[in-house]
Protein backbone atom coordinates (compact mmCIF):
# COMPACT_ATOMS: atom_id res chain seq x y z
CA UNK A 1 0.00 0.00 0.00
CA UNK A 2 1.15 3.50 -0.73
CA UNK A 3 0.12 6.33 1.54
CA UNK A 4 0.02 9.78 0.05
CA UNK A 5 -0.68 13.13 1.65
CA UNK A 6 -1.60 15.59 -1.03
CA UNK A 7 -1.46 19.29 0.00
CA UNK A 8 -2.84 18.46 3.43
CA UNK A 9 -3.37 21.19 6.02
CA UNK A 10 -5.36 21.20 9.23
CA UNK A 11 -6.85 24.06 11.24
CA UNK A 12 -8.80 23.44 14.43
CA UNK A 13 -9.44 27.18 14.82
CA UNK A 14 -9.76 29.28 11.64
CA UNK A 15 -6.54 31.11 10.75
CA UNK A 16 -4.22 29.07 12.97
CA UNK A 17 -3.10 26.02 11.01
CA UNK A 18 -1.61 23.15 12.99
CA UNK A 19 -0.30 21.48 9.86
CA UNK A 20 0.22 23.18 6.50
CA UNK A 21 0.97 22.05 2.95
CA UNK A 22 2.02 18.53 3.69
CA UNK A 23 3.04 16.55 0.64
CA UNK A 24 4.29 13.14 1.51
CA UNK A 25 4.51 9.68 0.01
CA UNK A 26 5.18 6.60 2.08
CA UNK A 27 6.02 3.38 0.28
CA UNK A 28 4.60 -0.03 1.20
CA UNK A 29 6.39 -1.62 4.12
CA UNK A 30 8.30 1.49 5.13
CA UNK A 31 8.99 2.31 8.80
CA UNK A 32 8.68 6.07 9.15
CA UNK A 33 9.27 7.96 12.39
CA UNK A 34 7.93 11.46 12.90
CA UNK A 35 9.69 13.73 15.38
CA UNK A 36 9.19 17.37 16.24
CA UNK A 37 8.90 19.76 19.14
CA UNK A 38 5.62 19.77 21.01
CA UNK A 39 3.08 21.81 19.10
CA UNK A 40 4.33 20.63 15.72
CA UNK A 41 1.17 18.67 15.04
CA UNK A 42 2.74 15.19 15.10
CA UNK A 43 -0.29 13.55 16.65
CA UNK A 44 -2.65 15.49 14.40
CA UNK A 45 -0.82 13.99 11.44
CA UNK A 46 -1.61 10.49 12.71
CA UNK A 47 -5.25 11.43 13.40
CA UNK A 48 -5.56 12.56 9.79
CA UNK A 49 -4.16 9.30 8.46
CA UNK A 50 -6.33 7.31 10.88
CA UNK A 51 -9.34 9.24 9.57
CA UNK A 52 -10.36 10.41 13.04
CA UNK A 53 -10.30 14.03 11.90
CA UNK A 54 -10.69 15.32 8.34
CA UNK A 55 -8.06 17.60 6.77
CA UNK A 56 -9.07 21.23 6.27
CA UNK A 57 -7.61 21.17 2.78
CA UNK A 58 -5.95 18.47 0.72
CA UNK A 59 -6.43 14.73 0.70
CA UNK A 60 -5.06 11.65 2.40
CA UNK A 61 -4.85 8.79 -0.08
CA UNK A 62 -4.36 5.13 0.59
CA UNK A 63 -3.50 3.32 -2.65
CA UNK A 64 -5.15 6.19 -4.49
CA UNK A 65 -8.33 5.96 -2.48
CA UNK A 66 -9.29 8.93 -0.31
CA UNK A 67 -9.47 8.37 3.45
CA UNK A 68 -12.83 9.59 4.76
CA UNK A 69 -13.03 7.93 8.17
CA UNK A 70 -11.40 5.40 10.48
CA UNK A 71 -11.07 1.83 9.29
CA UNK A 72 -9.46 -1.48 10.21
CA UNK A 73 -6.83 -1.22 7.44
CA UNK A 74 -5.22 1.58 9.51
CA UNK A 75 -4.48 0.28 13.02
CA UNK A 76 -3.81 2.74 15.81
CA UNK A 77 -1.94 2.52 19.12
CA UNK A 78 -1.97 5.43 21.59
CA UNK A 79 0.50 6.33 24.32
CA UNK A 80 -2.04 5.23 26.94
CA UNK A 81 -2.98 1.68 25.98
CA UNK A 82 -6.78 2.31 25.89
CA UNK A 83 -7.69 -1.34 26.32
CA UNK A 84 -11.18 -2.60 27.13
CA UNK A 85 -10.75 -3.10 30.87
CA UNK A 86 -13.61 -5.61 31.20
CA UNK A 87 -12.32 -7.87 28.43
CA UNK A 88 -9.52 -10.39 28.91
CA UNK A 89 -6.28 -9.93 26.98
CA UNK A 90 -7.42 -12.44 24.35
CA UNK A 91 -10.82 -10.81 23.95
CA UNK A 92 -9.20 -7.38 23.64
CA UNK A 93 -7.14 -8.66 20.74
CA UNK A 94 -10.25 -10.31 19.28
CA UNK A 95 -12.33 -7.10 19.25
CA UNK A 96 -11.47 -6.05 15.72
CA UNK A 97 -11.97 -9.56 14.37
CA UNK A 98 -15.42 -9.67 15.98
CA UNK A 99 -16.28 -6.38 14.27
CA UNK A 100 -15.17 -7.81 10.95
CA UNK A 101 -17.31 -10.91 11.47
CA UNK A 102 -14.46 -13.40 11.48
CA UNK A 103 -15.76 -16.83 12.62
CA UNK A 104 -14.87 -17.91 16.13
CA UNK A 105 -12.43 -20.70 15.28
CA UNK A 106 -10.35 -18.54 12.96
CA UNK A 107 -10.54 -15.70 15.48
CA UNK A 108 -9.13 -17.80 18.28
CA UNK A 109 -6.40 -19.18 16.09
CA UNK A 110 -5.33 -15.70 14.98
CA UNK A 111 -5.49 -14.23 18.51
CA UNK A 112 -3.34 -17.12 19.74
CA UNK A 113 -0.71 -16.44 17.10
CA UNK A 114 -0.67 -12.69 17.80
CA UNK A 115 -0.29 -13.21 21.55
CA UNK A 116 2.59 -15.53 20.74
CA UNK A 117 4.14 -12.82 18.57
CA UNK A 118 4.01 -10.19 21.33
CA UNK A 119 5.00 -12.68 24.04
CA UNK A 120 1.77 -12.67 26.03
CA UNK A 121 0.41 -16.17 25.36
CA UNK A 122 0.50 -17.04 29.07
CA UNK A 123 -1.62 -13.98 29.98
CA UNK A 124 -4.43 -14.57 27.49
CA UNK A 125 -7.08 -14.87 30.19
CA UNK A 126 -5.88 -11.96 32.37
CA UNK A 127 -7.73 -8.66 32.66
CA UNK A 128 -5.78 -5.57 31.50
CA UNK A 129 -5.84 -4.08 35.00
CA UNK A 130 -3.48 -6.85 36.14
CA UNK A 131 -0.83 -6.08 33.50
CA UNK A 132 2.18 -3.78 33.61
CA UNK A 133 2.37 -0.76 31.32
CA UNK A 134 4.61 -2.56 28.85
CA UNK A 135 2.37 -5.62 28.76
CA UNK A 136 -0.69 -3.44 28.19
CA UNK A 137 1.04 -1.79 25.27
CA UNK A 138 1.84 -5.22 23.82
CA UNK A 139 -1.86 -6.06 23.96
CA UNK A 140 -2.69 -2.78 22.22
CA UNK A 141 -0.20 -3.59 19.45
CA UNK A 142 -1.56 -7.13 19.04
CA UNK A 143 -5.11 -5.75 18.95
CA UNK A 144 -4.21 -3.31 16.18
CA UNK A 145 -2.41 -6.05 14.22
CA UNK A 146 -5.37 -8.43 14.47
CA UNK A 147 -7.19 -6.68 11.61
CA UNK A 148 -4.11 -7.10 9.37
CA UNK A 149 -3.75 -3.33 8.90
CA UNK A 150 -1.93 -2.07 5.85
CA UNK A 151 -0.61 0.81 7.99
CA UNK A 152 0.16 0.67 11.68
CA UNK A 153 -0.04 4.10 13.35
CA UNK A 154 1.81 4.47 16.64
CA UNK A 155 1.30 7.66 18.64
CA UNK A 156 4.18 7.88 21.15
CA UNK A 157 3.46 4.27 22.12
CA UNK A 158 6.44 3.90 24.49
CA UNK A 159 6.44 7.43 25.92
CA UNK A 160 5.07 6.37 29.29
CA UNK A 161 7.34 3.34 29.81
CA UNK A 162 10.56 3.04 31.81
CA UNK A 163 13.84 2.87 29.89
CA UNK A 164 14.34 -0.91 29.99
CA UNK A 165 10.77 -1.72 29.04
CA UNK A 166 11.00 0.85 26.30
CA UNK A 167 14.05 -0.88 24.77
CA UNK A 168 12.27 -4.24 24.94
CA UNK A 169 9.32 -2.72 23.15
CA UNK A 170 11.54 -1.13 20.50
CA UNK A 171 13.02 -4.53 19.70
CA UNK A 172 9.53 -6.04 19.71
CA UNK A 173 8.09 -3.51 17.31
CA UNK A 174 11.05 -3.99 14.92
CA UNK A 175 10.48 -7.73 15.03
CA UNK A 176 6.75 -7.31 14.45
CA UNK A 177 7.38 -4.96 11.54
CA UNK A 178 9.70 -7.49 9.91
CA UNK A 179 7.31 -10.39 10.56
CA UNK A 180 4.07 -8.86 9.33
CA UNK A 181 5.58 -6.58 6.67
CA UNK A 182 3.19 -3.71 7.26
CA UNK A 183 3.86 0.00 6.88
CA UNK A 184 4.54 1.68 10.23
CA UNK A 185 4.24 5.38 11.00
CA UNK A 186 5.39 6.19 14.49
CA UNK A 187 5.24 9.55 16.25
CA UNK A 188 7.77 10.00 19.03
CA UNK A 189 9.54 12.77 20.88
CA UNK A 190 12.54 10.50 21.45
CA UNK A 191 15.06 11.16 18.66
CA UNK A 192 17.18 8.13 19.55
CA UNK A 193 14.12 5.90 19.26
CA UNK A 194 13.16 7.46 15.93
CA UNK A 195 16.58 6.78 14.40
CA UNK A 196 16.85 3.30 15.88
CA UNK A 197 13.46 2.22 14.56
CA UNK A 198 12.89 4.24 11.42
CA UNK A 199 14.17 3.73 7.91
CA UNK A 200 13.14 7.30 7.43
CA UNK A 201 12.77 10.15 9.92
CA UNK A 202 10.52 13.13 9.30
CA UNK A 203 11.29 16.24 11.33
CA UNK A 204 8.33 18.57 11.66
CA UNK A 205 8.64 22.31 12.15
CA UNK A 206 6.29 24.32 14.37
CA UNK A 207 3.57 26.96 13.78
CA UNK A 208 2.38 25.53 11.48
CA UNK A 209 3.74 22.02 11.25
CA UNK A 210 5.57 21.40 7.98
CA UNK A 211 8.12 18.82 6.98
CA UNK A 212 11.39 20.53 7.91
CA UNK A 213 13.56 17.57 6.95
CA UNK A 214 13.00 14.16 5.44
CA UNK A 215 15.99 11.99 6.38
CA UNK A 216 16.85 8.51 5.23
CA UNK A 217 18.45 6.50 8.01
CA UNK A 218 21.45 4.85 6.37
CA UNK A 219 21.84 2.11 8.95
CA UNK A 220 21.55 -1.60 8.12
CA UNK A 221 18.07 -3.07 8.20
CA UNK A 222 19.01 -5.51 10.95
CA UNK A 223 19.79 -3.41 14.01
CA UNK A 224 20.71 -4.22 17.59
CA UNK A 225 20.75 -2.01 20.65
CA UNK A 226 24.55 -1.67 20.31
CA UNK A 227 24.03 0.23 17.06
CA UNK A 228 22.75 3.11 19.17
CA UNK A 229 26.41 3.74 20.09
CA UNK A 230 27.87 3.66 16.58
CA UNK A 231 29.41 6.89 15.23
CA UNK A 232 26.98 6.94 12.34
CA UNK A 233 24.04 6.65 14.69
CA UNK A 234 25.30 9.35 17.01
CA UNK A 235 26.01 11.75 14.17
CA UNK A 236 22.51 11.30 12.80
CA UNK A 237 21.05 11.69 16.25
CA UNK A 238 22.92 14.95 16.83
CA UNK A 239 21.74 16.29 13.49
CA UNK A 240 18.08 15.54 14.21
CA UNK A 241 18.28 16.79 17.78
CA UNK A 242 19.73 20.09 16.59
CA UNK A 243 16.87 20.48 14.15
CA UNK A 244 14.21 19.71 16.77
CA UNK A 245 15.87 22.01 19.29
CA UNK A 246 16.03 24.87 16.80
CA UNK A 247 12.31 24.41 16.07
CA UNK A 248 11.51 24.31 19.77
CA UNK A 249 13.47 27.56 20.40
CA UNK A 250 11.79 29.30 17.49
CA UNK A 251 8.41 28.17 18.84
CA UNK A 252 9.22 29.46 22.34
CA UNK A 253 10.34 32.79 20.90
CA UNK A 254 6.98 33.20 19.14
CA UNK A 255 4.80 32.57 22.19
Amino acid sequence: MTLRLDGVSKEFAPGTPVLADLDLTIAPGEFVCVVGASGSGKSTLLSLVAGLTPPTTGRVLLDGEEVTGPGPERGLVFQTPSLYPWRSVARNVAFGLESLGVPRARREERVGRLLEEVGLASLAAALPGRLSGGQQQRVAIARALACSPRVLLLDEPFGALDVQTKEDMQLLIRQVWQDVATTVIMVTHDVEEAIFLGQRVLVLSCDPGRIARDLVVGLPRARSLEDKRSTEFLALRAEVEDLVRAEHRAHQARV
Binding site: G75, S82, Y84, A146
Partner: peptide
Protein backbone atom coordinates in the same frame (compact mmCIF):
# COMPACT_ATOMS: atom_id res chain seq x y z
CA UNK B 1 -9.44 7.36 23.08
CA UNK B 2 -11.39 4.14 23.62
CA UNK B 3 -14.08 5.26 21.17
CA UNK B 4 -11.45 6.26 18.61
CA UNK B 5 -9.55 3.00 18.92
CA UNK B 6 -12.82 1.07 18.51
CA UNK B 7 -13.58 2.94 15.30
CA UNK B 8 -10.15 2.03 13.90
CA UNK B 9 -10.92 -1.61 14.74
CA UNK B 10 -13.82 -1.59 12.36
CA UNK B 11 -16.66 -1.05 14.84
Amino acid sequence: RLLEVSATLGA
